[in-house]
Nucleic acid binder design. Structure first.
Lengths: 174, 174
DNA sequence: TTAATTGTTTAGAACCTACTAAACATATTA
DNA sequence: TAATATGTTTAGTAGGTTCTAAACAATTAA
C-alpha cells in the first residue's frame, strides 16, 4: 500500500480512537470502527488484527462490543470461513441513542436513590430532636431541588431524541 | 449527628460521587460538591477531609477543580484563617456548559485532523497509480461524510445552549 | 524570630482497566 | 477419526490513574 495513503488511514484510525476514548469508550472500539468505515470491502478479524497490530482476543471482544450496539454488522463473504464485518451507516444515530440511554439510566439511578433518602428521613422524623429536625428540613429541601431537575432533564432528552437524524438523511456506501 | 441523618447524607454523597464518575469526572469531585450542597454553612477543607475520610492533598486538588469550573465558591468566614467553600447554585448550567465545551473541543480536534488528511491526499494525488487513486477516492468520500457531520453537531450544540436554563429560574439558598 | 497553622506539591503505593498470550471450544476439512 | 482453522475465554501483566503521607511553602501568631 502507498505509504502516503497508509499514513492517512492510520491518522484517521488514530483520530477516531481518540474520539472514542474521549466519549468514554475504549480506544480499540473507535479504531476498529474507523478501519471498517474506510474500507470498501468487509474485513475479517485477522485483517484487523494485522492492521491495528493488536491481539486476536482484544479484537474479538471489541468487535463484539461494536456489534452489540449495532455500529458494525457481520457479513458473509463467499468462499471464506471467517467472520467478516462492515460498518453500519447510521452510527451517529446509534451513538446518540447510546449517550441518551446512558444519561437516562444514570438519572434514573440517581432519582431512585434520592427517593429512598426522602423516605428514610420521613420514617425517622418522629424521634428527631429540634436540631435534627432543622437539618432534616434542609436535606429534604435539597433533595426536592434535585427531584425538580428530573423534568428539566426529561425535556433535554426529548430534545436529543428529536435531534437524532433519520437514517435516510445520511446515505452511504456505493 | 443523628445516625439516620448521617446515613442519608452519606447516601447522597455516594450517589453524587457515582454520578460524577459516570460523567467522566472524579468521584471525589462529586462527593465534595454533594457535601457542600447539603450543608447550610460553608465548610473548610479540614471539615471535608474529616467527613469524607480522604487525604488533605486529595481534597485540595479536587476542590480547586470544582472552583476552577465555577461549581463551588470560596467564601470568607469571620474569625477563621481557613478557606471555606460553598456550592454554587446553578450547577446544572455549569455542568451542561462543560459538557458542551468538551464536545465542541473534541469535534474541533477531529475536524482539524480530518482536514489535514484531505490535504495530504490531495498533495500526493499526482503520483498515485490507478489502484491508489481508487483508494484515495474512497478515503476522500468518507472524510467528506464526516465533515458533513460538523453542521449536524453544530445544530445539536445550539440545541443544548438553548436548553441551558437561566440562573434565576432555579433559585436556591435561604 | 521562632513556632504554629494552613494549603499545595510530590514521590511512591494501591488500584483499576485494558491488553496479550495461551489455553480452550467449536466447526470444518481431509 | 485426526488435523486444521477459527473465534472466545482467561490468567497474568503492563500501564495509567488516583490516592495517601510527607515534605514543602506561605502566612499568621507569639
Amino acid at each position: 500500500m502507498n505509504p502516503e495513503l497508509e499514513k492517512v488511514r492510520d491518522s484517521f484510525i488514530e483520530t477516531m480512537g481518540q474520539l472514542s476514548m474521549s466519549l468514554g469508550l475504549s480506544q480499540v472500539v473507535g479504531q476498529l470502527y474507523a478501519l471498517l468505515y474506510l474500507s470498501n470491502k468487509p474485513l475479517s478479524l485477522d485483517d484487523m488484527v494485522e492492521i491495528l497490530e493488536i491481539s486476536k482476543g482484544n479484537a474479538s471482544v471489541n468487535i463484539r462490543e461494536l456489534e452489540r450496539w449495532g455500529a458494525v454488522r457481520r457479513v458473509w463473504v463467499k468462499g471464506s470461513r471467517r467472520d467478516h464485518y462492515e460498518s453500519e451507516s447510521d452510527v451517529l444515530k446509534v451513538v446518540l441513542n447510546r449517550l441518551k440511554d446512558g444519561l437516562q439510566r444514570r438519572i434514573n439511578n440517581t432519582m431512585d436513590a434520592i427517593g429512598k433518602m426522602s423516605e428514610l428521613i420521613n420514617e425517622g422524623k418522629k424521634e428527631f430532636s429540634a436540631t435534627e429536625k432543622k437539618t432534616a428540613m434542609i436535606y429534604i429541601e435539597r433533595l426536592n431541588e434535585i427531584k425538580e431537575f428530573r423534568s428539566v432533564i426529561r425535556g433535554f432528552l426529548r430534545n436529543v431524541s428529536e435531534f437524532i437524524p433519520e437514517k435516510d438523511k445520511l446515505q452511504r456506501r456505493s
